[in-house]
Structure formats: C-alpha cells, structure tokens
Design a protein around this nucleic acid. Structure first.
Lengths: 107, 107
DNA sequence: CGAATACGTTAGCCCGGACTTACGCATTTG
DNA sequence: CAAATGCGTAAGTCCGGGCTAACGTATTCG
C-alpha cells in the first residue's frame, strides 16, 4: 500500500477523490469530467485503490467506485502529521498581520 | 509558480518543510538530515522556492532558508479546497462508528 | 447466439523528475 | 593572495509515471 498523500496529491487523482466524495460513481461518469481517456482514469483509480483510498464493487457491467472512509482517515492523519504546530503558528501569524496590522511597512 | 500542494507532497520536500518550520536552516544543516547529496537538497529547495513556500537570504557564505508564511497560507488553502465537506463527513462517520458503535456487524 | 457496452489490462512511448558527479562562483580565513 | 568553505548550476543518467492505442473479458440486450 503506497503513500496515501503522494497518491492523492496528483491533480487528476485529487479531483477524482473530490468527485467520489460526493458519492459513488462509475468509471465512465468520472472519465467524462476529464480530457484524458478512460483507461487513464482506470489507472488513476487503481493507484487510489492501491493506496486504500477508494474501492470498487461490481454492479452489472459497471464498476461503482466509492471512497473508503478508513483510507480517508489515514490520509487525514498523514496531512495532520505533516502539518506541524510550527506551520500552524506561521499561518496564524501571517493572517493576523494581514488583518490587524495592514500598515506595518514604514521607512 | 508551480502547484504548492504538488511541490509539498514529495516526501523529501515534505520533510524539508517540517525542518524549516522549526526555524531557518542552512543548506548543509538540512542536507545532514538526508541520505541524498547536498546538490539534491539544493534542487528540492529550488522547487519549494519556485512554489513560493521557502525563501533564502544570504548570510556570509551561507544561504539561510526560511519558510514563507504567505506560501504556507496558500498551501493550507489548497489543502482545504481539496478537503471538501464531504470528505470531512466521511471522517466523522468513520471515527464515530469506530468509537461509539464498535459492534455493528450482525447477520 | 451475436452485437454492444463497460470495464481492466497490456505494450509501448515519452517526458519529467530525482539523483550524482563535476564544476564554477562568491566569501571567509590563514 | 591562496586555500578552504558553502553554495548553485550544468550535464548526464535512470527510472517511474502518465498517457494512448489496442486488445481481452464479463455482462446485457436484441
């Protein structure tokens, strides 16, 4: 099982996860949203599946892909582990400076 | 300026950002923490700089790299934009099931 | 049964990315 | 000034990732 964050970071797969977050979708439905071919989408889905982020169940001749909640939790954990407290403090600092002290550049 | 999330997702660069979050570091200090060579780290730092996530200032013959708060804010925004409400709900669901309803699998 | 549909899979291409080695440049130090 | 240090950069290698085209497979439908 590959690194969930690396798998999810790729732009096309990022978008796929967003689409699947709204509910299960077939491969064709997903492929419609992109300019690349359907096989390309299938391969991206395979990467996401390998990372434990999505799963598919057969439905007639369709394959219905869904997000795997446990995988999403895992992904969230990876993001949070990356996003250290120090980075949070930097964000707080930056937004505070931008909102309360807009004129701090003096000669 | 490249995609901040794609730039930050790469494992080595992820780690670089974490190290820099703790405070400014020289290239050599950073390179010590990795097995790859110093030029490799320099190149990774260049990618992060291109994405607006880090910056360097000259200090004698050293180059002191620091995190750019505005870039981190931008990165955070990208993550949040990716992390849709639906994904949040899935996480809530999954954790709730795991903590309050551990025995929900019945025939 | 044969055609059509909805896939996954394979093979192959190609480009980019991660890496190393070697070098060049500025700066400090003796 | 010369050596040493701390870098960035250039050149070249290599491998993997994303893509397409073509094919194989299961399922549905006429």
């Amino acid at each position: 099982m590959a690194d969930a964050l690396s798998a999810a970071a790729e732009p096309t797969r990022r978008r796929l996860l967003q689409l699947l977050a709204a509910g299960p979708r077939t491969v064709s439905e997903l492929a419609e949203q992109f300019t690349v071919t359907r096989p390309a989408i299938s391969q991206h889905l395979a990467v996401l599946a390998d990372a434990g982020l999505v799963t598919a169940r057969k439905d007639g001749r369709q394959r219905l892909y869904s997000v795997v909640p446990a995988g999403i939790v895992q992904l969230r954990a990876e993001i949070d582990r990356f996003w250290s407290t120090e980075l949070d403090l930097l964000v707080d600092d930056a937004t505070k400076r931008a909102t309360t002290q807009p004129e701090e550049h003096r000669p």
